[in-house]
Design a protein around this nucleic acid. Structure first.
Lengths: 192, 192
DNA sequence: GCCGATCTGGCACTGAGTGTCAATCAGGCA
DNA sequence: TGCCTGATTGACACTCAGTGCCAGATCGGC
């Protein structure tokens, strides 16, 4: 761990904290990157060296979370059918989340109220989908060269859609009901 | 039909045709709105009087198509369960599409290759979801005041996700297999 | 103490999207 | 026919996100 990478991580965290504060205070769209840079004590240009877009400040770690989900999924016993294994993997990653529900709720609401954030968030889910699909294809015994075998894609996309639906309901209902339960209910409505 | 609204419709169509030509020729992102305006013989400012965003030129009529789907869905016999009725509604609207497969394929490929278009397209699907959900809730007998009954949202979102998965596979495979079949296969993988 | 790699700020630029204003033009009315 | 109202248009200026470029500062190894 060199000093460069240490300061880099520190600055990264500082920008995130400062920006999230501004976002929650005056809204995502009403906060410009100049605002964030000024508040974090860096130049506008440097902001873009840490984050590709303004949305990435909010959604950046979704990529890492996707990799966690994939790992959890691959660790599932081979005896489980893919659907059950996917549900299990998502549950285990939810349990390991380090944020409090209150923080998560604020972020969820912001994402679901801001079109550009919602769009990016769905884009990240598509990346999750791409991460998870190969293992599902393997478990289903699908021909890797067949572009028309859509079973794996359909299963993965559906599970992630259920997560999205559950998240939306959770945010709309102010988190009064646990997210896991909503997710299970959504999954059951599709497969039950 | 006054002359104003007639010219308005004509200009709308002219912009669409001109823009799509440019998009397919040099790509969506490489075509600026200045290019479109110049080619269509209007001012940059007027372009934004007909289309809110550049993406809307490609995806604009998805809103109208969503209303068609809703109408087709509501016309389905009460005896069908929601899932079957949703599949039927989507099929009937696909059949009524007036574009050729070749044109549709080009547009599909463009949408699936361009991040901003892909994101907007999914946003439109979310609007379809909002259009279809109330009727599904009614058919399921869900309490309209219960924000935590996610069954209807889950069903609608899943069906649309299957459509999306099918569309992606269809475009990836150059339309060599009919879209309807891919859609049915995706739906069967989830529910079968 | 020197050298190369990396980080940083500043500047200029493109491109999307918005607000404003004056000019234009269709349509109704006297 | 001539006028008035309201919708449309083009032009200009502006904000904001995002990118390319360059010169200077800073760190790490030799």
């Amino acid at each position: 761990m060199t000093l460069w990478s240490r300061t880099r991580t520190a600055v990264y965290g500082e920008i995130t904290r400062t920006a999230m504060e501004l976002f929650l205070e005056r809204g995502f769209e009403a906060t410009t990157i100049d605002d964030i840079a000024a508040a974090a004590g860096i130049s506008r240009r440097s902001f873009f060296r840490y984050f590709g877009t303004k949305e990435d400040v909010v959604l950046g770690d979704l990529v890492a979370r996707g990799e966690l989900i994939r790992d959890a999924f691959e660790a599932r016993p081979e005896s489980e059918d893919p659907w059950t294994a996917l549900l299990g993997a998502l549950h285990s990653v939810k349990d390991a989340a380090d944020e409090t529900d209150a923080e998560m709720l604020k972020v969820f609401k912001m994402v679901h109220q801001t079109p550009s954030l919602r769009a990016r968030s769905i884009e990240k889910h598509l990346q999750w989908q791409a991460l998870l699909t190969p293992e599902v294809r393997r478990r289903l015994g699908a021909d890797p060269a067949d572009p028309f075998d859509v079973r794996a894609e359909a299963l993965v996309a559906t599970v992630l859609t259920c997560l999205d639906v559950a998240g939306e309901a959770w945010a709309r209902g102010d988190g009064a009901v646990p997210l896991e339960g909503l997710f299970d209910a959504a999954a059951a409505a599709v497969r039950g």
